[in-house]
Amino acid sequence: MNDDATVLLVDDESELVSLYSAYLEDRYEVRTATDGEEALSVADDSVDVALIDRRMPGMDGDDVLRELRAAETDCRVAMLTAVEPTADIVDMPFDDYRIKPVDEAELVGLVEVLIERASYDERSREFFALASKKAALEIAGETSTAAYETLCDDLESVRADLDNHLDAVGAEAAFSDVA
């Protein structure tokens, strides 16, 4: 666990923000926002994890996500929402997707996983983001689209690249004492 991590909670339901904040505030610094504009005003490079609702009045969570990525804010992002995923999520640049409600254990676990993923290389983070999208679409029964098939192909391609890299690193390590 990373006690000095900062988590940004973004949801227009203030009661839910308060509940999720209570779940996390003993472990992390927590920032909250109840709309998209407020979220962008408190998001900066010190934010490690952002948990964003998709459906909010005004600037929705999809727009917040796009703005965070456009500003190159380097945080892991999970869409934490009641919106069932469809093929539209395939091109969204988030790290994880969860359907509300979530309990304390699931929320804390999600934040811990996202903090851990921040230490991974970019290709590994891409793999886990693709795997999360695939799982979300499978849970929602959204597997008969061209976007889902492309997602599966992309996931396999990244997996093959990672396997090749790990094989090469393993071979280098195995022969490092010989040189």
Rank of each mutant, 00 (worst) to 15 (best):
1 M>H: 15
8 L>Q: 00
8 L>C: 06
15 E>K: 01
19 L>R: 07
21 S>R: 14
21 S>Y: 03
23 Y>T: 00
23 Y>W: 00
23 Y>K: 00
24 L>Q: 01
25 E>V: 02
31 R>K: 13
31 R>M: 10
37 E>Y: 03
37 E>I: 02
42 V>W: 09
42 V>E: 08
43 A>M: 07
44 D>I: 09
46 S>Y: 09
47 V>E: 02
48 D>C: 10
51 L>P: 04
53 D>E: 09
57 P>K: 10
58 G>N: 05
58 G>M: 06
60 D>H: 02
61 G>V: 00
63 D>I: 00
67 E>L: 04
67 E>Y: 09
68 L>D: 05
70 A>Q: 05
74 D>I: 07
75 C>M: 12
75 C>S: 10
76 R>N: 01
78 A>G: 10
85 P>R: 12
86 T>K: 05
86 T>L: 03
86 T>W: 05
88 D>M: 06
89 I>K: 07
90 V>N: 04
91 D>N: 08
91 D>I: 00
93 P>H: 11
94 F>K: 01
98 R>W: 01
107 L>N: 04
108 V>R: 07
113 V>Q: 15
117 R>C: 07
117 R>H: 15
118 A>E: 15
122 E>N: 05
122 E>L: 08
126 E>G: 01
126 E>Q: 13
128 F>G: 06
129 A>W: 03
129 A>H: 02
129 A>V: 08
132 S>V: 08
134 K>A: 13
138 E>R: 14
139 I>H: 07
148 Y>C: 05
149 E>M: 11
151 L>T: 10
151 L>R: 07
154 D>F: 00
157 S>F: 08
157 S>R: 02
157 S>P: 00
161 D>Y: 10
161 D>P: 07
161 D>I: 11
163 D>Q: 13
163 D>K: 13
163 D>G: 04
165 H>R: 10
166 L>G: 08
166 L>P: 08
166 L>Y: 12
168 A>T: 08
171 A>D: 15
171 A>R: 14
172 E>R: 14
172 E>T: 12
173 A>N: 15
175 F>S: 15
177 D>E: 15
